[in-house]
């Protein structure tokens, strides 16, 4: 695992066509731009260990309403940029004066990133099946770089969590995770998620999480 760890400025390849995310090209060579694990499968990319969420169109995120404007909601998506949710992107047709009754300040929503332009103006949409306002359950926030670990290879980790913990779990790409279920189940799920975040870079994580979940089981039953 260790030999895959690179720091900014490390030479990765001299084939410019392979340059992927987390790299930069200088003088016909590919260098690491961030501190992380290098993945050379099809293109060379560096998988970050930290960093803020940068929205891309098509992402599904959990956002928090921070302001209601004339025809937009201002949504915090835990990135350096605040996102806009236009009134026409709300699933129902509503008037501007009803906006704060539908989504008020502090409400959490599952929304899709519709568009991000070059100046990082982020537009969200709630028109779509999986998009909704979150009324129940709880949301925790972890580093967005750890989200792929929570999902696991081909979804192995998330399906483990869902089947073993009796909870509804929804993962936003921006690092927020929504959990719904009985209170003690939620608490246990959150503990498991924080364990994943802490130990995300270690091998054999899925097995250890499996152990962690089953360790507690007898006491709840």
């Amino acid at each position: 695992m260790n030999k895959n760890l690179v720091i900014p400025g490390d030479l990765l390849s001299s084939d410019v066509k392979q340059a992927g995310e987390g790299t930069y090209v200088k003088d016909g060579q590919v260098f690491a731009a961030i501190f992380g694990f290098v993945n050379k499968k099809d293109r060379i990319q560096v998988i970050p260990l930290a960093g803020k969420y940068m929205p891309h169109s098509g992402d599904v995120v959990i956002g928090k309403i921070v302001d209601v404007r004339f025809s937009n909601w201002l949504v915090n998506i835990s990135s350096p940029y605040e996102a806009l949710l236009h009134i026409s992107e709300y699933p129902e047709r509503i008037d501007a004066d009803q906006m704060s009754q539908c989504l008020g300040i502090g409400d959490l929503v599952v929304a899709g990133v519709k568009d991000v332009d070059v100046t990082m103006k982020v537009e969200l949409t709630m028109c779509g099946e999986s998009f909704k306002k979150l009324d129940s359950g709880g949301v925790i926030e972890i580093s967005h770089a750890k989200i792929p670990r929570v999902i696991g290879r081909k979804g192995s980790m998330i399906s483990l969590l869902k089947s073993e913990l009796n909870c509804d779990i929804f993962i936003g790409q921006n690092g927020r995770i929504w959990v719904k279920g009985r209170e003690e189940d939620i608490n246990h799920t959150i503990k498991a998620l924080l364990k994943i975040e802490r130990e995300s870079h270690t091998p054999g994580l899925t097995d250890r999480i499996k152990e962690f979940i089953s360790d507690r089981k007898p006491t709840t039953m």
Partner: peptide, 11 residues
């Protein structure tokens, strides 16, 4: 800066 995951050309 590297620990914060900020893209850099080197250290």
């Amino acid at each position: 800066l590297a620990d914060a995951g900020i893209p850099m050309r080197g250290l």
